[in-house]
Amino acid sequence: MKHLAFLFVIVALAGPASAEDVVSIPTPSAGTALAQKGDRANSGTEAERRKARLDLMFGRLAKATNKRRADRIARHIMRRMTQSGSDTVDLLMVRAAKAMQAKDLPMALDLLDGVVRLQPDYAEGWNRRATVYFLVGDYGRSMADIEQVLKREPRHWGALAGMAMILAALDRKDEAVVVMDHALEIHPHLEKMKEQRDRYAKENGGSDI
């Protein structure tokens, strides 16, 4: 389960995008469904464009043929999802990440309480707080925050990893397998999660992927 914990925390601590992580958007001239999505990604309101770009990237992630490309797309998605659009919220998130890295979890919780109050529609604020609650062993509050994440972004595989970890810790491994199956549909190259999923399935008398 430590591999899932690593994924949960790493996703929560994702930093700003770098130029090498950016995946290009197909142009309408390609004449494909992806090109049409790319067209929508460059029109409409900023929120609509952001959603269209994420939809496009999630589509590419699900179809990635190798782990290297999948990881590159996944990094790009996570960087986008950490962008709050608010300088104040971004600052609180940076300070919370530093507090987490320094193992000052009470301070991190205080900062993240501020994030979810200021911007309740920001999924990554809830995800970061869910991670801290998990780290302090408060599975109930962590699960509640994960549910808030998934209401806003049901494809958040890091939040799904956290949910699977909590379910497994509560000896509900059959439910954890279902959650991990869903996460692997979104990001099919989470190799450690595949291994964990197979172990849980065998323990419960199920079949491999």
Rank of each mutant, 00 (worst) to 15 (best):
G44E: 08
S142D: 06
V178H: 14
L34W: 10
P120H: 07
G125L: 03
S18K: 13
G158Q: 01
R152C: 11
G85C: 07
L92K: 03
S29N: 12
K51F: 04
E46H: 12
L167M: 09
A14F: 02
K37N: 05
I146T: 00
T131M: 13
M100W: 01
S84Q: 00
M143H: 09
V136P: 02
L4N: 00
K67D: 01
A17E: 07
K63H: 04
R40S: 12
L4K: 00
I77E: 00
Y200N: 03
T82M: 06
T65Y: 00
R68L: 01
P120I: 09
L34Q: 13
H189I: 05
R40E: 05
D39F: 11
D71Q: 02
T45G: 08
H156I: 04
I10R: 12
V132D: 02
K173F: 07
L34G: 12
I166G: 06
G205V: 11
Y133A: 12
A97W: 03
P154Y: 11
L91E: 06
N127F: 10
D171I: 13
S142N: 13
G15Q: 06
E191N: 08
A176R: 12
V23A: 09
V94H: 09
S84V: 00
K192W: 10
R152W: 05
A99C: 02
R152K: 08
R72S: 07
D71G: 02
M1F: 06
